[in-house]
């Protein structure tokens, strides 16, 4: 996975609350068998009209934001379904960090599986970042967002931070605990023998 350290880029404001995963990537694009290529379908229903033409009023169709690598959003971003297609689509478009006052649980987890950084900041901070000119810098080692002469500090769990900074493969990490897992399974077979399924 691509590590995430310091990112400087254009931040697109989409300051609505409750941006759900159906809005981020609608169902018709979930039929893919691969992780790539979803960027063009990101926010499909609000980005294109029913004839497939770009809506000029949508932020990602406007000049500086076509190359945005940061998204500024309202609270409860990513609510709804568990589809990892949502972070895949954001990443494929070029977004590497999302700043919002809060995130939905499953989406938040899915970001870290894909090297995306969800940053939780108060709504006022996000609004003031949206108002500033020029690029923003997200400094993960320092846990800071800087832009327009402002600096905001954010919290992130140490384990999550390490995964992003080093681009760690979670499965590989867990494989270091294989002996623990095997021991657990042996114990569990004794304690809860009814859980073993032989045949469906």
């Amino acid at each position: 996975m691509d590590p995430f350290t310091v990112l400087t880029g254009t931040a697109a404001p989409l300051l609505r609350a409750n941006i759900d995963t159906d809005l981020i990537i609608p169902k018709q694009f979930l039929k893919t068998l691969v992780r790539s290529g979803l960027g063009r379908n990101l926010f499909h229903e609000i980005r294109y009209d029913s004839d497939g033409r770009e809506r000029p009023d949508f932020v990602l169709n406007q000049a500086p934001y076509r190359k945005a690598s940061i998204l500024l959003a309202g609270p409860n971003f990513g609510c709804g379904s568990s589809r990892e297609h949502a972070p895949w689509a954001l990443k494929d478009f070029g977004i590497r960090a999302i700043l919002a006052p809060s995130f939905a649980d499953i989406f938040f987890n899915n970001c870290f599986s894909n090297g995306l950084l969800p940053v939780t900041l108060p709504g006022e901070a996000i609004e003031s970042l949206a108002a500033c000119e020029g690029p923003l810098t997200i400094d993960l080692p320092a846990q800071q967002v800087r832009g327009g002469g402002q600096t905001f500090t954010f919290e992130i769990e140490a384990a999550r931070k390490a995964v992003l900074l080093e681009g760690l493969d979670e499965i590989k990490r867990t494989e270091a605990n294989l002996a623990d897992i095997t021991a657990y399974e042996a114990r569990r077979r004794q304690e809860a023998p009814w859980l073993d399924i032989q045949k469906v």
Binding site: S82, E84, S113, L178
Partner: peptide, 20 residues
């Protein structure tokens, strides 16, 4: 609980998930 596809793969490989 619902999980993403990377976690689906994680469970397939290890029968566990790192959780908070």
């Amino acid at each position: 609980f619902g999980i993403g596809t990377s976690e689906v793969e994680h469970v397939m490989a290890t029968q566990t998930l790192p959780q908070r």
